[in-house]
Structure formats: structure tokens, C-alpha cells
Design a binder for these strands. Structure first.
Lengths: 153, 153
DNA sequence: AATAATTTGGCATAATCTGCCAAGGAATTG
DNA sequence: CAATTCCTTGGCAGATTATGCCAAATTATT
């Protein structure tokens, strides 16, 4: 992956639907080698996919919650079951295994507070093996970007 | 925004570069009304943009860190300056104002631990007004999706 | 400096986008 | 309940874009 690939990636992070011709112009290539590089990035897995950014509030899911989860124990079966089950919960957009005091960090989207309570009661607790939950609500978004930093600092 | 718009959004979250023809087929419309709906979603701001999902590890930024930030005080000038400055730090992909013990939650991507130390010393601390930082490193990703849950649960 | 390997650019064809207009369907009103 | 109005849809035509192939140019290697 050379500098041109990086510029392709950065351009597509800003606008993932840019036409190949515009992309080519932006990275100083003609369309065919540009397209070939994009396809190669896709095939090699560096480009995992494309997506649309939705205004969650306008969509009707205005509340974002970060939830720190600690498991009651760390036996294989408890861990495996939690990870398998959490994957299937639609409201959980992200689930990370973390260092520090808690085991997992979830990003959850719901419509409102009442919805969040239902989510915890009906989706999280039934999973079992959870020792504690610590929820922090998002008041506001200062920054949210898809553009990764340049590699050479 | 009716059911068809929701299906359009969900399809584009899974594949943001799907051609309009495929999208139309997937939501049972012909291409022209489908395109019109997409344009309307873009103009109304529900669709904020399109992006590419990059494998951060393959890209060379394998370490993700969540940082909880507490400010020393909450005067207007301290808050404003922090939010203005943090926005310009490329390694900060997300910055949320949070309820709970700390004021902000950051998601930061760096190449490695050495890089993270440099990031804290050169990018975060110079901002000033920071009372404490609490960093948690991501060990693994259990789930990461762009697909918002359906609205009716 | 010569050769080999890789990458690039241009061209032709195929696919897709996009704006316009008539037809269809839903809602409203008398 | 029927007539009108309004909104949405579908199809078509021209413009734009994608895509595969081949020769030329560039880069790396020896």
C-alpha cells in the first residue's frame, strides 16, 4: 500500500460514493489504474465495505449510550455465550473487549430513555453472566469522523 | 419517512455503493422513484454522507483507545477551547459529551503503544484544562456494524 | 546500461445514472 | 359514493460512468 492507495482511502472515507473518475482526478491518476487499485484494496480486505452515514436523531434513534459490562466470571462458556448473544442484539452497534476495570464496552442506540430501560431488561440481562453494568449517556457529539489519520506523523 | 425509505437506508448501510438499480430491486421499486427517494434523504439530511470501512489494522493503525477526559473546570472558555482543539486532532475519531464521572469520551486510533504515548503528550495535554485522563485499550472487537436497528421493535 | 516486471493511460463496449412525461394510486372533498 | 386533486410511480432517451484489453511508460533488478 503506497501513498496513492492512502490518498484513495482518505478520499473514499470523505465520500464513499465518489465516482471513479472524480476519485482518479483527486489522486492524480487516470480512471483505469485508479479503479484497479480500488478493486485490489477491496479484494485484499483493506477496504471492508461501504456504508451510508445516517443522522440517528432524524432516523428516530436519538439516544446513544455507552455501556461498560463486567462478567461474573471468565470461564470459557460464560465469555463465549456473552459474545455470541451480544452480537445478535440489533441495538448494540459496537462491542469491544477492553483493558481496565470492565470487560466490554458497548455502544447502544435507542429511541429514548424508556426504550433504553426496555433494552437492558429484555436484551442485556437475559444474556446472563453479567456482574455489573455501567451506563453513560451521550449528551452531545463534539466530533465524529470516518477519516483515519495519515500514517506519517 | 415511510417503510420504503427505511429499507433503502438499511440496504445502503450494508452496502453504500450498491447501484441504484440493485437498490431499487431490493426495495421493490423501479430505479427512478428509488433514486428520487435517495436524493430526498440526502437533501433532508437524514443521509449525512457515504464512507468506506477500512481495516484499521491492515491500514497500519492497529490500536484503538477509549479515553475518558475530565476537565479541571467548566468555565465557558475551558470548555470551548477543549472542544475546538480536540476537533482538530486527527487521531480522535469520535468525541462525545457524556453523563457520569467524566466529561468526554474519545475514541482514538494510533499505530502502537509508543504512538499513543506521543499522542497523549503532544496532542492531548497541550490542549490544557484537562484534570484527568483514563485510557482503556481495545483488546478485540466482538461486533462493529453500521446497520441501525429497525424502528419498530 | 540492459532486461524484466509492474504500473499506467487510452480506447471501445457495456452498464448505469438522471431528468422528463404520462399513467397509476391514494387521499380529500363535496 | 363519486369526482377531483395531489403525490408517487414507471418507462424512456440522452448523458455519464464503469470495465476490460493492449500498447506505452515507468520502475526495479541485475
Amino acid at each position: 500500500m503506497d501513498g496513492k492507495d492512502q490518498r484513495i482511502i482518505r478520499a473514499l472515507q470523505r465520500d464513499g460514493r465518489m465516482t471513479n473518475q472524480d476519485l482518479a482526478a483527486k489522486v492524480n491518476l487516470s480512471p483505469s489504474p485508479c479503479l484497479r487499485r480500488v478493486k485490489m484494496l477491496e479484494q485484499s480486505g483493506i477496504i471492508k465495505g461501504y456504508s451510508v452515514d445516517i443522522d440517528t436523531e432524524a432516523y428516530g434513534l436519538g439516544v446513544t449510550v455507552f455501556v461498560r459490562v463486567s462478567l461474573a466470571d471468565h470461564t470459557d462458556s460464560t465469555v463465549k455465550q456473552f459474545e455470541k448473544d451480544i452480537e445478535r442484539v440489533d441495538q448494540v452497534m459496537e462491542c469491544y473487549v477492553m483493558t481496565g476495570a470492565s470487560d466490554y464496552l458497548l455502544r447502544v442506540v435507542v429511541a429514548d430513555l424508556a426504550d433504553y430501560e426496555k433494552f437492558v431488561r429484555r436484551k442485556l440481562h437475559p444474556i446472563g453472566g453479567i456482574a455489573s453494568l455501567d451506563s453513560s449517556f451521550v449528551y452531545g457529539v463534539v466530533k465524529k469522523t470516518n477519516v483515519l489519520p495519515a500514517l506519517i506523523d
